[in-house]
Computed example of a mutant assay.
Amino acid sequence: MDWMQFVSALVSAVAWPAAVVTVVCLLKGPILGLIPKIRSFKYGELHVDLTEALQSLQEELPAAANEPDAPPPKLSVPLQIAAVSPRAGMIAAWLEVEGALNAVLKREGLDSNTHALPRQKLDLLRDAGHVNGPTYRAVLRTFKLRNEAVHMLDREIPYDDAVAMADVCARLVESISTYSKAQSDFISG
């Protein structure tokens, strides 16, 4: 192999990687601008889609009962927060669910450890018969969505997702409170 063949082999080996690096460098800005707009992400077994998961939960949970003559409901705190920061609105909505879990635990005298993980609180309520199976599973799925909202900081959360999360959480609070209250009334009555 003479020096011309060596140079030719070197150029042909470096050409494609150099072209790819050049294209990536030129398109870096537009690509980074698209990342926050991604609503779904899949890599191997990992698949994250907040919108799809929230819609699924909304379909599974019963709708809140509205009386026909009732005035329109006041805008909830999570929705007020979501108007400024959808991510913070999702977290605020979850905190209402956690507050409902704490209230039932306190009312039933089951546990005074408010620093326990939500999963531990939920397990305790389920084992005591104060949360039914569908609500238990929905709370776990909602907690997972809350974690994704908290930890996926490189992704923009749309206001619609925050509204859906607030709706799901309001339904869960109602379900936790009414099922637990009905169980207590049934046992004491």
Rank of each mutant, 00 (worst) to 15 (best):
70 A>E: 04
49 D>K: 02
37 K>F: 13
26 L>M: 06
25 C>N: 15
31 I>K: 05
30 P>S: 07
48 V>Y: 08
60 E>N: 08
57 L>N: 07
46 L>Q: 13
29 G>E: 08
63 A>Y: 12
16 W>M: 14
17 P>K: 04
20 V>M: 04
63 A>D: 11
57 L>C: 01
18 A>Y: 07
23 V>G: 02
70 A>D: 08
23 V>K: 00
25 C>I: 11
46 L>P: 01
64 A>E: 15
45 E>W: 15
19 A>N: 02
60 E>F: 04
25 C>D: 13
65 A>L: 15
50 L>C: 05
55 Q>K: 12
39 R>T: 08
68 P>E: 00
38 I>C: 13
45 E>C: 09
47 H>W: 12
33 G>C: 10
22 T>Y: 15
21 V>T: 06
46 L>I: 04
51 T>Q: 06
25 C>W: 13
34 L>G: 08
59 E>A: 11
41 F>I: 01
17 P>A: 04
33 G>D: 13
65 A>F: 15
66 N>W: 14
50 L>N: 05
33 G>F: 11
34 L>D: 10
52 E>R: 11
17 P>D: 09
36 P>N: 00
48 V>E: 07
57 L>R: 03
61 L>Q: 01
67 E>I: 05
50 L>V: 09
32 L>D: 07
62 P>D: 03
42 K>Y: 04
55 Q>R: 11
37 K>Q: 14
18 A>P: 00
26 L>G: 08
25 C>A: 15
37 K>W: 09
52 E>Y: 12
31 I>S: 03
24 V>K: 02
69 D>M: 13
20 V>C: 09
28 K>T: 05
61 L>S: 00
18 A>Q: 01
58 Q>C: 10
53 A>C: 02
34 L>H: 08
22 T>P: 03
41 F>P: 05
36 P>C: 06
61 L>G: 05
21 V>I: 12
61 L>E: 01
70 A>Y: 01
55 Q>F: 13
28 K>I: 13
67 E>Q: 11
36 P>E: 10
62 P>V: 01
21 V>Y: 10
16 W>A: 14
22 T>D: 07
26 L>V: 12
16 W>D: 14
36 P>S: 06
